[in-house]
Write a protein that binds this DNA or RNA. Structure first.
Lengths: 356, 356
DNA sequence: CAACATAATAAAAACGTTTTCAATAAGGGT
DNA sequence: ACCCTTATTGAAAACGTTTTTATTATGTTG
């Protein structure tokens, strides 16, 4: 075979507008307009060109479109991961977030590109790289800090983005969030109504905005009930299973230990249950545990736990929708939504049980 | 303000090779060569141009590079998700896979783009779309079926890809896999040695290649021990928590029920434990459970379980490495690796316990 | 019937690169 | 002093689009 394959090689090449122009006899301008359904080209030629395109299996080359349009058609998602091995079930909910975003982007020309980050500061660097190098047309990220460097940066550069969570600065930006203040309030109130006076809040990193929201709600429930808030029972740490377990082991060994636990996610909840098991305690009998659940797994814990449940995939869908609308030019102020999770009762709200 | 902003607008535009050409006085050809460190351009001019580029904050526009090079610089990853809400902890390990791939791709120009798929057939469509529309330079995917339409398609089209798992056809393609045959064999052997004669294998969808591998290993252990294989105790279904629970509830109600359970992943394991709890049985006392663990969570189950553990992030890293090498032109036959998970003993291997 | 508006298509420019090829300058050998 | 080689840079083409502008043909109007 001739290594240059002058003829057969050409035949197997992907067709372009130029190819179609040659086969149909029209100019590449008309081809382009016809395929984009421009009103200036006649219905008959449109038909003819479309047919030829179909026959040739023509697909517009995104690289050409991209260069010409000055767009990347990429939605960059910052995905946090923990560094070390032995990470323990961290970030498991991201699959669902991505699924939701993906659903929203279906039908659009946008694709999801993943940028793994270690922490918020690393996230700022990633954001800067994405903006400076023009790697994407917009950004989606979560794990918002009260003072989030990414939000500051992106707002200042006027780069489109949607945040899963709100920071504590009065800036206008598109976001989706869970009403964590309310959820923590409702959980605490429920435990108080169940007779608990010493309640532990297993919380993530204190710089996270929603960690503060949860503390606010936690406090308010005590104040409204006229009880001293359990500030000493707030465990601020990771979202890991290990942290949940360690928190229980620690908190149950201090004087006047907690009898109720409010967990921040499924991972810490699993850890809390593991810690209780190690101490010979059982949720629903010796202590009460209320969880927050993104991925509908609390039903399978032993015992099944009462949770505040909001499928995180739904948030993902909203993120994707807001992303597209933001890219299309809508104002950030119009792209903000707050969700309240559903209370799923799986354990009775027991009254005044003697603390073991 | 003048809506056209003739001057200030220009100043804020991203610099291009043309800009640099103007500021330095060199031609765009020289600029390009200098920045790519071509040997034909003199050291002095290189230095001058690099300085100017740095000062201007020049970053090559990927869209231009992409069009010219005919590459997308995208590594497409097919990410499976279950459709319905109430998905129950499915696909949680993908975060780790992505993290691993991301680590391997660091330093390269490649970015990860996510394509969510519902099942293998949907995956084939996605693969076809990616290939036909030229959305990526290569593909990474998992959940390999014994007869996987994606592998057939991609091999036939000679499109670069790396599979997490092997199909059962004798095709040459890059892959990374876990030795599931061995793992299932070892798990079964251990339970047999512990005195169990009726052992259940909680397996994923039977069309999955690694499901068959596991059955093979499962069988072999019985044969080698001279015991009748428990074909009736193979539960082939999903990877979901629900399936794990339902399997236990079903299997424990048949005559001569299993006393040992071998689980396929953490999700089903959690379900199995939930099912056992509902029946009043405890792992490690009434029955034995051996799990397979991707994400190091089995230590927190109650009780902690003996598992075969292989951090899936490591597989992800290998996938990314193989991807780059495949893209660079290496032969698929050189890009194949099989991993054996580590046995992590958390429960004693008990002898001949009366089945309750 | 000439002038002109309108419709349809074609030509050309642009997006930002990289690469091939041409052009210039400098140096070395005879 | 002249030719030839070599080193360095510049010009131009190409990647595949889309959009702006120009060109032609057609029909309408005074």
């Amino acid at each position: 075979m001739n290594p240059k394959k002058p003829q057969s090689q050409m035949a197997t090449q992907r067709p372009t507008v130029k190819t179609l122009a040659q086969t149909t006899g029209y100019s590449i301008a008309t081809i382009s307009k016809a395929l984009r359904d421009s009103p200036v080209v006649t219905a008959e030629t449109k038909e003819r060109i479309r047919e030829a395109a179909l026959k040739a299996g023509y697909q517009a080359n995104m690289r050409g479109v991209s260069l010409r349009a000055g767009k990347t058609f990429q939605a960059a998602v910052l995905m946090p991961v923990t560094v070390a091995e032995g990470f323990e079930w961290d970030g498991v909910e991201y699959t669902q977030i991505l699924s939701g975003i993906s659903q929203a982007l279906e039908g659009s020309d946008y694709r999801i590109s993943i940028h793994v980050i270690r922490d918020a500061e690393d996230g700022r660097l990633a954001a800067q790289r994405i903006v400076d190098a023009g790697l994407a047309d917009g950004l989606i990220f979560s794990g918002i800090l009260a003072e989030d460097p990414r939000i500051d940066f992106l707002v200042e550069r006027n780069f489109p983005f949607v945040a899963l969570g709100r920071c504590r600065k009065p800036l206008a930006y598109a976001h989706v969030d869970v009403d964590n203040d309310w959820a923590a309030y409702a959980a605490t109130e429920r435990l108080i109504a169940g007779g608990h006076r010493r309640i532990a809040l297993i919380n993530p990193d204190g710089r996270l905005s929603y960690a503060m929201d949860r503390i606010d709600g936690f406090h308010r429930a005590f104040v409204q009930a006229g009880i001293t808030p359990c500030d000493d029972l707030i465990a601020a740490g990771g979202l890991s299973t290990r942290f949940g377990k360690e928190s229980v082991l620690h908190l149950r060994h201090i004087p006047d230990p907690p009898t109720g636990f409010i967990c921040v996610n499924e991972a810490t909840t699993l850890g809390v249950l593991a810690g209780l098991a190690e101490l010979g305690l059982a949720a629903g009998r010796d202590v009460d545990v209320i969880a927050y659940d993104d991925i509908n797994v609390s039903a399978y814990f032993a015992p099944p736990l009462t949770t505040f449940y909001l499928p995180i995939e739904r948030l993902g869908r909203k993120l994707g929708e807001f992303f597209l609308r933001r890219i299309a030019g809508e104002e950030p102020a119009a792209l903000q939504e707050l969700y309240r999770p559903d209370l799923v009762v799986r354990q009775a709200n027991q009254q005044q049980r003697g603390t073991p």
